[in-house]
Nucleic acid binder design. Structure first.
Length: 270
DNA sequence: TCTGACCTGCGA
DNA sequence: TCGCAGGTCAGA
């Protein structure tokens, strides 16, 4: 579910909610099944976290990163993860996987489909967190993108490869390629430098607009206060198969690419 | 590089 | 009841 804009929305909520620095007072993993595959937080690690202050909340790609005195607690929301300050802010309190208290502020991790994860990394393991280039990085230009996407794989699959660019998921990959006028099926290495310049521009613009709209909600995504994102109303292709393209009037097409639904306009995108 | 598996909820 | 859904990973 949550891609970069949705995770950034939650991060901004957290910045307004938490005080820094604040001691991590409580951390309880509520679901036994969750513990095995999706977290390394055993009793020893939790004890290590609880002795520390939270200094800041960062985001890298789709990861939400709580910076501690010596280490990082990293949340990945998977397809259906939520972080809420009050269990009344979610329709799914029965899917609570972790309960936390930072300073005097409670936080809950809700994970309906159980694809989310929570990991603790020590300072020397930092490299494992910051994998891939964050697409909001201002330094990204056409030349860099062209090198990054130099592969025979479809450009949409490459955009969603988190080891290249971290944060673009299925919704925004379709939206970005429509903005850039590029067919999702084009091999990455077929893109010209000018197309990559346009792509770099669209990546930033589409993601920035989605952040300003507090993310995209179809069903599950909510911010920390339980409110829906407003970006769904601004989508140009995603979920609009059979409807008219706003630019040319041609019908939006839906195909499967890399086992994911992909939407594009056959006229505007070449 | 591709495919299936992991999960639950929702709408057709 | 079935198919689909915003993600990621292991294994072939």
């Amino acid at each position: 579910m949550p891609e970069l804009p949705e995770v950034e929305t939650i991060r901004r909520d957290l910045l307004g909610y938490l005080d820094f620095p604040s001691p991590w007072q409580k951390f309880h993993i509520d679901d036994g099944d969750f513990r095995v595959k999706h977290t390394n937080l055993d009793r020893m690690v939790i004890r290590e976290i609880i002795s520390q202050n939270v200094h800041q909340v960062h985001r890298h790609g789709k990861k939400l990163i709580f910076e501690l005195d010596a280490g990082f607690v990293v949340f990945h929301l998977g397809m259906s993860g939520q972080i809420v300050s009050d269990l009344q802010n979610t329709f799914y309190p029965e899917h609570k996987k972790a309960s936390m208290l930072i300073g005097q502020k409670p936080l809950y991790f809700i994970d309906i489909r159980r694809f989310g994860s929570i990991w603790f990394f020590r300072e020397w393991e930092k490299d494992k967190i910051f994998v891939g280039l964050d697409p909001m990085n201002q330094a990204i230009n056409g030349k860099m993108l062209r090198a990054m996407l130099h592969s025979v794989s479809p450009v949409k699959v490459l955009l969603m490869d988190q080891t290249r660019l971290a944060g673009i998921g299925n919704i925004y990959a379709s939206e970005i390629l429509h903005c850039a006028g590029i067919l999702p099926t084009r091999p990455g290495n077929s893109l010209h430098e000018q197309e990559c310049e346009q792509l770099a521009l669209c990546i930033r613009n589409i993601l920035r607009a989605a952040i300003e709209n507090f993310g995209t909600t179809f069903s599950i995504f909510r911010n920390m206060k339980g409110q829906e994102g407003k970006n769904s109303a601004f989508l140009k292709v995603y979920g609009r198969d059979g409807e008219k393209c706003f630019q040319c009037g041609e019908k939006i097409v839906k195909i499967e690419l890399g086992q994911r639904s992909t939407f594009y306009c056959p006229v505007c995108q070449r």
